[in-house]
Design a protein around this nucleic acid. Structure first.
Lengths: 344, 344
DNA sequence: CTGTTAGCGCTTTCAT
DNA sequence: ATGAAAGCGCTAACAG
């Protein structure tokens, strides 16, 4: 029943490539009449073996279609050549660019990337990290739900870096919240807004500092501020929040992310609100659909791609980088059509 | 310099979990005073060992925080417990639901998923598959750029299944093109359209059958049809195609995917066209932003998520499933606002 | 420069 | 029911 089951006995002598058993360094060694260890050396440390035999070995390897078996190599060396990125939800467009950035750096350096979802659950996240730990050379955690102590402990085994949120004891790559929120508040203030609601998601690490900062910045500008809690970071939750937004009487909204902003905008339009005059909305992230929306979304552009590349670069260089370094990337306000001068 | 370098000699006896070296079955064996092979048995074949010692072993394992090392297990068994999904471009929203579907099935069955990009290049794709081959139990290829022979050869080593496009010699999971395109053409015909343009992407396997079929269906309905070639499956390319769409004089467009449709719509709006009256547009895929667009996109909803789940299920079951089975999933027309009765 | 040997962590006969 | 031993494919001393 197994796919490895032996074939009928009269099967013709098959070419190794055809049998389904990939060639090993033993096959190469036999073919050129040398010892496997010599083959290993020739293939891995060019120069530490006779030029002509190295040539023969490479030729044989190519002919057989040989590729090293990363798992076999990982055992003696402890290096797997792969990294993992652990995140709550692949579906969230925010993560697309981040993953892509990470993937590119990984591949450019000859590494493989494993992606794993946690469904936003701390226990699944812990379990996932532990399971993956022996198969990778390091991990990226995005929007982690684990507390700093847990992450610190976990990182004793393999290096972990936090992407898109700060973990005090881990190297982290994060957007410059102060820069972005300041620009957003200035923008709203310039347009005459004096009241704002923040559509937040409690229970997520990233939410708290964002809101605290927004609160301070609003206060400094004489803007009143309220927080409205979301159930989830989704279009639906954004739409559902409209009711409370209207009830609050604010003229402007800062959304947890663009998905939420999309939902809010759509619901508002459905209710016949005139946008952006009746309500100004600022998103967060600048996902690709932000400019497709109507009105096109004014949003804080998170440098997702670069967060991914820098974070991956950081894990790869983890040896040199044992301190919990923080990389802060610019967070810019992109002004489109969803914000306007206050009309009431 | 290495992270494995020995610490100062007066270092206190460290708990294994703290040293960074994960515990092995040898650690467990030693702790309970048994042979490693017994530990292996106890952990893997419940029942084939004395109930009480199995209990002691499990307790010790839990206490040490033991997890099997998948790579060490892969060597003797040949089973890695991971699958790979190989696709041109992670960034394409189309692939996200597919990945998510695959990921869920993989994880539900205890497997790990590797994602790898090919940049839409056949040679990178071949290289990637070969490199990954020894690290996985099977692969999913999405929108492959390789010809059927190559794929067939590659699949001698590890099972490969094609997702979202048909590969004659591979098990494939695909949307029901005939169903979807028939609905689309009927819809246009009902609205009075008698001319249509197909915005296609030459050089991609998926494109040809789609266009051939559309052509037949149009002819059968007395609709004239032209193909307009895209440079890429992107928003930008869709926008750039507007010029040729207008020159062609058609009243309706079938876009290669929703991204292209988005671009076309946006460009048309920017040029002051009245949508959908001046031009009806049908997208393909139904990515999440389709309903966010203005006008909201009428589109063929590709069952991406299910394609991912079915495809992953198929590789996992590859043993039982050696024939090149075809799974065809329904492709439904979702009518929104981007199509209207022809007005000229 | 090349061969020998041992071992990475785990599974799997084969004995006992 | 448990132990002993061999081996998966590769690397890394250590000899020669």
């Amino acid at each position: 029943m197994s796919r490895d089951e032996p074939m009928a006995s009269d099967e013709p002598m098959a070419n190794p490539a055809r049998t389904g058993r990939p060639p090993t360094i033993y096959d190469i060694a036999q073919k050129v009449g040398l010892n496997p260890s010599t083959v290993s050396r020739a293939l891995n440390r060019p120069g530490r073996t006779n030029a002509s035999t190295e040539e023969r070995i490479r030729a044989a390897a190519a002919e057989l279609g040989y590729r090293v078996n990363p798992m076999a190599r990982a055992l003696p060396t402890g290096l797997t050549g792969t990294f993992a990125i652990v995140l709550p939800d692949i579906t969230n467009p925010v993560h697309f660019e981040l993953i892509r950035g990470a993937e590119q750096v990984a591949r450019a350096n000859g590494y493989t990337l494993i992606i794993s979802e946690t469904e936003g659950l701390a226990e699944i996240e812990r379990e996932t990290i532990q399971t993956l730990q022996s198969s990778v050379d390091g991990l990226l955690v995005v929007a982690s739900r684990l507390d700093d102590d847990s992450l610190a402990t976990l990182s004793w085994v393999k290096p972990i870096v936090a992407a898109n949120h700060a973990a005090p004891s881990l190297p982290s790559v994060i957007p410059d919240l102060a820069m972005g929120l300041t620009a957003a508040m200035d923008h709203l203030h310039d347009l005459g807004h004096r009241s704002v609601a923040y559509l937040g998601l409690s229970g997520v690490q990233i939410n708290r500092p964002r809101w605290d900062l927004a609160l301070d910045l609003a206060a400094a500008r004489d803007i009143s501020a309220v927080e409205i809690a979301l159930d989830a970071p989704t279009v639906e939750a954004g739409a559902a929040a409209l009711r409370r937004v209207r009830a609050s009487g604010v003229t402007a909204v800062l959304a947890y992310n663009d998905l939420v902003a999309h939902g809010l905008l759509r619901a508002a339009r459905a209710e016949g609100l005139h946008l952006p005059d009746d309500l100004s909305v600022i998103g967060f992230d600048d996902i690709f659909s932000a400019e497709l929306a109507v009105p096109a979304l004014t949003t804080l552009r998170s440098p997702l791609r670069e967060i991914g590349t820098r974070a991956m670069q950081t894990v790869i260089d983890a040896d040199r980088n044992r301190a919990a370094s923080k990389v802060v990337l610019p967070l810019e306000l992109v002004v489109r059509e969803s914000t306007a001068r206050v009309s009431r």
